[in-house]
Design a protein around this nucleic acid. Sequence first.
DNA 1: CTGAAAGCGCTAACAC
DNA 2: GTGTTAGCGCTTTCAG
Lengths: 348, 348
Amino acid sequence: MTTNTPHQPEPPPETSKPRAPVKITDVAAAAGVAPMTVSRVINTPDRVSPETTAKVRAAIEKLGYVPNLIAGGLSSRKSRTVAAIVPTIAHPMFSGVVQAFTDSMRRAGYQVMLSISGYEDTDDETLFRAILGRRPDALLITGSAYSPGALQMLIEARIPIVEIWDVSSRPIDMVIGFDHARVGAEVAAFFCERGHTRFATLMASDSRAVTRGRGFTEEAIRRGGAIVSEQVMPAPSTIAAGREGLRGLLPLLDDRLALFCSSDMLAFGAVTEARMQGVAVPDRLAVCGFGNFELSEMNEPSITTVNVEGVQTGRNAASVLLRRLAGENGHQPEQVEVPFRIIARAST
Amino acid sequence: MTTNTPHQPEPPPETSKPRAPVKITDVAAAAGVAPMTVSRVINTPDRVSPETTAKVRAAIEKLGYVPNLIAGGLSSRKSRTVAAIVPTIAHPMFSGVVQAFTDSMRRAGYQVMLSISGYEDTDDETLFRAILGRRPDALLITGSAYSPGALQMLIEARIPIVEIWDVSSRPIDMVIGFDHARVGAEVAAFFCERGHTRFATLMASDSRAVTRGRGFTEEAIRRGGAIVSEQVMPAPSTIAAGREGLRGLLPLLDDRLALFCSSDMLAFGAVTEARMQGVAVPDRLAVCGFGNFELSEMNEPSITTVNVEGVQTGRNAASVLLRRLAGENGHQPEQVEVPFRIIARAST
DNA sequence: CTGAAAGCGCTAACAC
DNA sequence: GTGTTAGCGCTTTCAG
């Protein structure tokens, strides 16, 4: 064509380098072998002779070949990709889970697709369609209430699924978590053993937190204690909400009170506000949080809390999935209870 | 076959549902149309007649069809996937970036593959190979020192890349961040304007933090101040390190001192330890942090800090990438400075 | 508006 | 050890 083609200037061929991304046939041609041999050098090197391997490696290096795992995955029906859905990564527990999980999976050659679902139940079917459409080899989800349709999609995907955070009553496949009601009960027992009889809770409005609060009040009452206040704050938990919560408690502080907060953020806020208001901690107000953030350990006074191992949970989740993906342990459902423990500190 | 096949029991056909995952041809057959028509119903609905659309939709619904985006991506050479690499998600700044970025991208139909690189420079070429092999349509990376080989891979991938966090001197493509040295300089100016003349820094050993510290000391000296201590703590920043850092400063607190910490975690630790040691804040020791964590605002005393918008950065990063992916603004490099600002509080 | 043919880049399965 | 053939499940392209 010698006619003008205005507004569509072709890129001048200044650099002689090939513009198209290099693929396996390019490498094969450069090395003088079949594409399949290149594939073997990459995936099963021990089935290729050293000389061939060297030739192919050189070609790969020279051309800067990066294998297209998408194409490979389509062919082998393995994406070497796993999806993870968590409500948030702002919470140290979940950031620990995600960090440990992505790390473990990457070591094993898997990439993690992360989805952050938020605490409100949005349209889970749309989310799952977006995820399952990418054909992950496995799935990590955070125990939560899913719609029947969404649940159905998960089951029909026929991939290993691990639910974390909550030992739920209706496990889909594998579960790694703990019993939130029991956490609350143990904190109540902890307070009672220290002679407390008046109790209050300060909970975020997410379902697990509420469960912990319920476990707490039930056990406290069972042991003859009195619940004098049950405040619920909108999730996510903040220090500000903790401070506000404590101000709501001030009229009740004429006598000794034990407060259970659903998060260390709330607990820190409560302790800080107590200091400002001249309420003695732990003499007048004893406080226990949840999550064992660094904050609780390093604050003055240090704050009693419940430790839950996010990192360990993420690592465990990766390891049960990897085992299942490796074809071991058939389809045995696995249900791992992650231990939690109360760490007594200066605030109680 | 009537012979025994021990150890390989076939799954009994108890449920009559098809076990194989349903694909586009199944839907096409069920709806009595060509596969291509099913594809159009999903991707370009306005090019299909309402009646056909209805038939196909019904078939999709009935079979529970979830389109294989991997296959579609191979064909269309678009994965509708983007990768993000951040050093950590434990830091509120980065968790904000990741949260906002994944959210924005998901809204636009993209899934995010997350990689957490850590602060140590591990083998970046291996990491990039794992990521680029999945053919993301775009990339978000956290400005950092990459090896020449790794950089080469990024360039040859020929996809939009946005670097966040640092306005670096050698942008690969697009950049969204700020000048860390200038942050330090402005904090120094802030202190000087308040009459300070003796300064100290407490920095984490990551390169941006060090840059902020250098900016601080240079400006402080330029304005006639004296730097009496420069401590560097191993990354990541912790409250514990802040407390320890303050103890190292005690011998220097005979006179008024202004301390710049590379993170609010360090600043909170320093302020807390100061309270324990009976050092008056801000009268004897003035403290400024970095990051504007909730902690700093809600602590007593509240802590002066530098605000950087993680959420806004993540959202910006998504929007420049999406614009580029939509084919607008050609290949204009984009360099967005995210504003930062000092928030003066009770600790200064 | 709908369909048929071809092929995305790779690997499973089977030859040699 | 290495090569050949035939797809993986979708979309592009072109024809009607």
